[in-house]
């Protein structure tokens, strides 16, 4: 090990204090992150299983998602259709999309 590396690791004689601070920070941030990802994954699995076991609910959800996704795309023809004339379709659609 080179001299500069040794000096760096020694932290001017305060190595235990400095490195345990950084080590603890790393550990804590990693544990929180891993626990949060694992928690999300397990809930999503449970949710998927529940929705698969209840197909009626799932169909309703799919309909809702379709209507929801249409908020942008499906709204445009609607606003256009409600518009005053064919030539105004584009501007109406823009106004509708921009809310």
């Amino acid at each position: 090990m080179s001299q500069t590396m040794k000096e760096f690791l020694a932290m001017g004689g305060y190595a235990p204090y400095v490195w345990s601070s950084y080590g603890l920070a790393l550990l804590l941030l990693l544990v929180l992150l891993v626990a949060s990802v694992a928690g999300l994954r397990s809930r999503e699995r449970t949710l998927a299983a529940l929705e698969a076991a209840n197909p009626r609910r799932r169909r309703r959800k799919a309909d809702a998602a379709g209507g929801d996704g249409g908020e942008g795309a499906a709204m445009l023809p609607m606003t256009g259709g409600r518009g005053k004339g064919g030539q105004n379709d584009a501007t109406d659609a823009d106004a509708g999309g921009g809310e």
Binding site: L33, G39, L40, R43, L50
Partner: peptide, 15 residues
């Protein structure tokens, strides 16, 4: 991440 987990949790309870 945690808010998504909480929202999924609420949905699970409702189901």
């Amino acid at each position: 991440l945690r808010m998504r987990a909480e929202l999924a949790d609420a949905k699970i309870q409702t189901l």
